[in-house]
């Protein structure tokens, strides 16, 4: 009797263990089912490489959105990376343990603040400043980059702190013993050892920036064109989906799902890269 129920439990748990995979497959299948036929119907070239987006007139080119996503994400990295990395180094290397116990929860709290709140601050505070001091419509790539940069800060910070902390103290002691200053120790001994962890953190932050929707819609202006400068408005892939989803029917809706397919592929590639980076870290 006991053995039997042990077997049953093992079976149930094995089944449960595949739930995440099952969900993943379900999601991918349904998004592909809605989006892929459309892509092949109008041709991947027409879909990916044309920047004419006018679904009601049968024009479905999302090149401008892909470019928009890239601009905004690169901008977010430009803002978030130096701040996050420098912050992580300082906090991990120079802060006593007790201070860390206050700072780390604060950082994680910021990761928990709803993205719409960030977006709203962008609209109310940031966009007017940009419009008045630099020109353009204010709702721009620059505004979106800054907001996203701040949003990915917690991700980059906390993963980088963890991986810097994970570098064995013997590395530092060895470097000090050779007469290196603290900074030399950091950039010659600690950072190279923490590199893959930091890269994983950056990639996860990237994923968050590309995938963010609501905050971006609020601050980026959503013009469906290839932006010429950071003061221009743009429309990232996520914004394209959420903006028009409520109204779209037929081909138009399929086109939005197809946009989702492209987004999903980009994210999957990033995930894969992050996983490889983490694996490298573990191997070391």
């Amino acid at each position: 009797m006991k053995i039997f129920s042990e077997m049953a439990i093992r079976r149930v748990l094995t089944g449960i263990a595949f739930s995440a995979i099952a969900m993943l497959i379900l999601i991918i299948l349904f998004i592909l089912k809605e989006g892929l036929p459309f892509i092949f119907q109008i041709g991947p070239g027409n879909f990916l490489l044309s920047s004419d987006w006018s679904p009601l007139n049968g024009k479905f080119g999302i090149f401008a959105m892909i470019v928009g996503s890239l601009w905004v994400t690169a901008g977010a990295l430009f803002i978030g990376l130096p701040l996050g990395l420098a912050g992580a180094i300082f906090l991990a290397e120079f802060l006593p343990r007790w201070a860390m116990r206050i700072i780390k929860p604060t950082i994680e709290l910021l990761a928990g603040i709803p993205s719409v709140v960030y977006g709203f601050i962008g609209v109310m505070v940031l966009a007017p400043i940009i419009r008045d001091s630099l020109g353009g419509p204010g709702l721009s790539i620059m505004a979106a980059s800054i907001i996203l940069g701040v949003m990915i800060l917690p991700t980059i910070l906390s993963i980088s702190i963890d991986s810097i902390k994970a570098v064995p103290n013997s590395y530092r002691e060895g470097s000090f013993a050779l007469g290196a200053t603290h900074w030399q120790t950091i950039h010659m001994a600690v950072l190279p050892a923490a590199k893959s962890g930091i890269i994983a953190g950056i990639i996860l932050g990237l994923g968050r920036a590309i995938g963010e929707t609501m905050a971006v819609i609020m601050v980026v202006g959503n013009a469906a064109k290839i932006p010429a400068s950071v003061l221009d408005s743009a429309r990232p892939l996520t914004a394209n989906i959420a903006l028009e989803m409520g109204y779209a029917t037929g081909m138009h809706r399929q086109a939005l799902f197809a946009t989702g397919v492209v987004l999903l592929i980009i994210i999957m590639m990033l995930n894969f890269a992050a996983n490889t980076a983490i694996k490298n870290m573990v191997k070391k």
């Binding site: 609209v123 419509p137 709702l139 819609i217 202006g221 959503n222 013009a223 469906a224 064109k225 408005s233 429309r235 959420a242 903006l243 028009e244 409520g246």
Partner: peptide, 15 residues
């Protein structure tokens, strides 16, 4: 193509 796009009457008004 330069047009800012918003997804409701209220957001157009706010912009």
């Amino acid at each position: 193509k330069e047009a800012i796009i918003q997804d409701s009457n209220g957001t157009v008004r706010e912009t």
